[in-house]
Simulated scan of single mutants.
Amino acid sequence: MDFSERLRRLSSAGIEVIELFSADDGRVTPVSVASAVTSCGADSGRVDRAIDDADPDRIVEGNAAWAELAQQFSLSGSDGTFLLAIDTAGGEDSSYEWFRVRLTDQWDLMGRGAAEGVLGGGWGIPEFRMHSLDGEVLLAASWYETCFSVLAVPRPYRAAVLRGEAEYLLTRRPSAGREALLRRWLARGAG
């Protein structure tokens, strides 16, 4: 699926994509590091809301769990925007970037968003990463054998798993720009 089709499908799921977000200042978790958020445990402050696949209201329950965590951890800024990791390449050559987005009145992340293949792998099979603009919370959804989960990791720059992922990525000889971004983000949580 090309990028314009991905944007159309996000719109269908109730997500207005505003602009590509530059995370160069190290405030926001690099998207390559954020992909490891589901490996964070309770020691990172992770909060989960699991929704059983057998629950006939799982889509409604999942969307409500997302909204509860988004509000509890202040995902959205005062203008209602937050960041969403969007694949800009698609296919086997996926390449995710942070985009500033806003929900429309008709949003449905767990149902239409997942079914459209832009926020998951099918109806009720969500898979996505979201971030607050201030870098203070990482929200995600992932699916498992018998359920899916919506989760939040506050202060992701302090989460040992994410810091370990950033340090690992530094050993992979990233470009100078990517290396500088990883180091700025790691410095944020060093104190």
Rank of each mutant, 00 (worst) to 15 (best):
A54E: 15
S22C: 14
T38R: 07
A34G: 12
A180V: 00
D55I: 07
S32F: 02
E127T: 06
G121V: 13
R49Y: 08
A190G: 04
G124S: 08
R46D: 06
F99K: 01
H131V: 03
A152P: 14
V153G: 12
Q72W: 03
E61Y: 09
G122V: 05
G117F: 03
V37H: 01
M110G: 05
V33Q: 03
I86Y: 06
R129D: 06
G135C: 06
T171Y: 10
P56E: 00
S35R: 02
T104L: 04
D48S: 14
A114W: 09
R6N: 06
T171A: 13
D48H: 12
R163D: 02
V33F: 08
D52A: 15
G26Y: 02
A140Q: 03
T171P: 11
V17W: 09
L139H: 05
A187W: 07
S78R: 12
R100M: 02
V37L: 05
V137I: 12
D24Y: 07
S39L: 11
R46K: 15
R49D: 04
G164S: 11
N63L: 08
A114N: 11
S95E: 13
D53V: 00
F21I: 04
V118D: 14
P56K: 03
S142N: 06
C40G: 02
S94F: 14
G62S: 10
T146P: 01
Y144R: 09
F21K: 01
V17S: 06
I15N: 05
P174K: 00
A166S: 05
G121W: 15
R46A: 11
A190N: 15
A152Q: 08
E92H: 03
R100V: 00
V150T: 13
L7P: 07
D53I: 07
D25R: 13
V161N: 01
R184A: 12
S12N: 11
A34D: 04
D52M: 13
S149A: 15
V37K: 08
V118N: 12
R9P: 04
G135Y: 10
L103V: 02
H131F: 01
F73K: 04
R155D: 12
L170F: 02
G90S: 09
L20P: 13
S11L: 08
G191W: 07
W66R: 02
G120A: 09
S78Y: 06
R9A: 05
